[in-house]
Design a protein around this nucleic acid. Sequence first.
DNA 1: CCTCGATGCGTACAGTGTTCGCAAGAAGCG
DNA 2: CGCTTCTTGCGAACACTGTACGCATCGAGG
Lengths: 243, 243
Amino acid sequence: MTADEQQVPSVWARLDRGRREQQSLSQEQIVAAAVRLLDTEGLEALSMRNLGKRLNAGATSLYRHVASKDELLELVADEIYGELDVPPPPTEPGQWREATVAFAHSVRAMILRHPWIASVLGAAGMSYLGPNLMRITDQMLGVYEAAGFSLGEGNAVMSTVLAYVTGVTISEAAWVTMLARRGQTDQDWFERLWPIAQEAMKPYPRLSRLYAAGVDHDPQRTRDEGFDYGLGKVLDGFAATRA
Amino acid sequence: MTADEQQVPSVWARLDRGRREQQSLSQEQIVAAAVRLLDTEGLEALSMRNLGKRLNAGATSLYRHVASKDELLELVADEIYGELDVPPPPTEPGQWREATVAFAHSVRAMILRHPWIASVLGAAGMSYLGPNLMRITDQMLGVYEAAGFSLGEGNAVMSTVLAYVTGVTISEAAWVTMLARRGQTDQDWFERLWPIAQEAMKPYPRLSRLYAAGVDHDPQRTRDEGFDYGLGKVLDGFAATRA
DNA sequence: CCTCGATGCGTACAGTGTTCGCAAGAAGCG
DNA sequence: CGCTTCTTGCGAACACTGTACGCATCGAGG
């Protein structure tokens, strides 16, 4: 690199460096690039030097727009919260339930699109003050308000459902990143490690019986159905007091 | 160290090194020391060199008993699952509910005792094959079996409740570690950052209204009550189909 | 034109996980 | 007892990490 710079007349180097297309480096660009890097290569590939390389920038240049890696992760988390679809406020009170189901599916899909978020959540929590998260929370409260819930009741429904969804989906996300890191699929794993798992389960008769049955189904569908089933029960609990 | 070894007759050094009290280094010791270190100093303080120091051992010695840091974290996760209290199988079918509540409280207390687990969960998932987790899962399935649930139904209740509990508690854990890292208490935070938070919430009227009310209560009680309320709703959902 | 604040970045530092090879003791075996 | 083999601890080294600092270079404002 330094050899090139001295070999070429320095004017070119200056022109090339000084004003890249667009404004060279901005916080939004950095965050967007970080999300792309995380999606394609996973959490452990996100280093400041790696990220700088993607932006044709030096590692330390990023610190002009982002205070630290931790702060970058908070920004990144809120960035992907912006992908969530908030259903429109219902016109009839009974529609709170399908709106909640739609929102829950949106959250699950978002986490599975960005499974690394599972590892970030434990450190950053929900970054409660992120603008996207605030906007979405407020809009969802509006949904429940339109359905006739009080603010506290609406918040209870939303929080409970969100806890359930993240709880389920973090496990799923951890599973898919584990598979991705080994370059395996669900089927690969079952074929290769199932005998070992079955052997390990031998001292536990109920576990053995439970998983002996469900091995032939495809696991993706099983996860989807399990998610919807549990979600339905949670909503049943709130629907009961509503009626 | 090297200076001491040459200064002192080498016999002492050999005696001291060869057989320390107990058997010097074992996987259980390493895991237990790791849990202690994580509890007292947090996740970012867990490095192999630091852990080695605690055990009067070199960093690389640990690799004789543990394949990698990732594996150590899996072992550590299963270790603390061993602290969970599984309620005894109920004698009457209706008691599944209070048994589930007791288990949920045990899980929440365990996570709050070891809040760093929130950051580990996203990477390791539940290490489904860990012996402690298997034992506990099997015992809980036994609880539901004794209450008259089918194996699949019991698993559904347990999974849903566990998802809810971990979802809620991971957020709480992230919160307390954030406070701990800054050496603050709940009250500190509210006194110092509340005006800023309130200002940030201004564009979101429902959020503002929601949190404007609950500022005078003590947040610990609020979290406890919110947890129990949501848990009750989840159990209501399952109780409904049961009756 | 000249100054000034903002921006990019090379260097450096302390620390990380992990590999490798060596030494020293334990254990099996004659 | 001796001899060999196996296990265990560890120092040195490697490739990397996040980040502080100071120096260049730039566009904008006087």
